[in-house]
């Protein structure tokens, strides 16, 4: 169990976005992960909300800045501005509402159109505690995730099931992508943010906003 740490000391800072249709439980996933809270009576997210939490990944402390976005379609023009610089995303649907799964494809397109090609994406089927109401089979979702080359997990923010795992997995994968990228350009992680390699096909290459103090150390 990763302990909650003081915000001051961390090695990496990763930006992660939570996207998906309205009412799938994005805000509760965020509050469960960052504050271990869940509210059956949560309020609609207007625009975006934000929270952070630091966890340990291998021997490093990774601080996640997580942007929770409004789900309504028309907000996409506004929320896509928040995708900039994101290195990870949790694309959430509601396992009890098939339409939210059908919309995943459009979310994915939107996300890929605004972020770096190396972004780590996890498809998240939330509300998995409502097994008797399940409208999206795990197999379908898994197949979709494989086809689209994303990770996949079913979660329940209410029962605190897999929430920790989902975020930790995304952050760990980001850590690996970033480390690999650092190796690719000569093993000096500090060289990465200088911008010599700007990834083809992606609009952003802010994969690792490494803490300055750490680079210098």
């Amino acid at each position: 169990m990763a302990a909650y740490r003081a915000d001051e000391d961390y090695d990496y800072l990763y930006k992660v976005v939570l996207i998906g249709d309205s009412g799938v439980g994005k805000s509760n996933l965020l509050s469960r992960f960052t504050r271990n809270e869940f509210s059956l009576e949560s309020k609609s997210t207007i625009g975006v909300e934000f929270a952070t939490r630091s966890i340990r990944v291998e021997d490093k402390i990774v601080k996640a800045q997580i942007w929770d976005t409004a789900g309504q379609e028309r907000y996409r023009a506004i929320t896509s501005a928040y995708y900039r610089g994101a290195v990870g995303a949790l694309l959430v649907y509601d396992v009890t509402r098939h339409v939210t799964f059908e919309n995943v494809e459009r979310w994915l397109k939107e996300l890929r159109g605004h972020t770096d090609s190396n972004i780590v994406i996890m498809l998240v089927g939330n509300k998995a505690d409502l097994r008797h109401l399940c409208a999206v089979s795990t197999e379908d979702a898994k197949a979709f995730a494989e086809r689209e080359n994303t990770f996949f997990m079913e979660t329940s923010a209410l029962e605190s099931m897999n929430v920790e795992n989902a975020f930790t997995e995304v952050l760990t994968q980001i850590y690996h992508v970033v480390s690999r990228k650092a190796l690719d350009i000569g093993g000096d992680p500090a060289a990465l943010p200088k911008g010599q390699t700007i990834n083809v096909g992606g609009k952003d290459d802010v994969s690792a906003v490494k803490k300055v103090g750490c680079c210098n150390a």
């Binding site: 207007i46 625009g47 975006v48 909300e49 506004i78 501005a81 610089g85």
Partner: peptide
């Protein structure tokens, strides 16, 4: 810090400060 002011002010305006 890499923070765009509008990231914060966007929700302020859209919600007319409610919440």
């Amino acid at each position: 810090l890499g923070v765009q002011v509008t990231w914060i002010s966007g929700p302020w305006f859209l919600s007319i400060f409610v919440n």
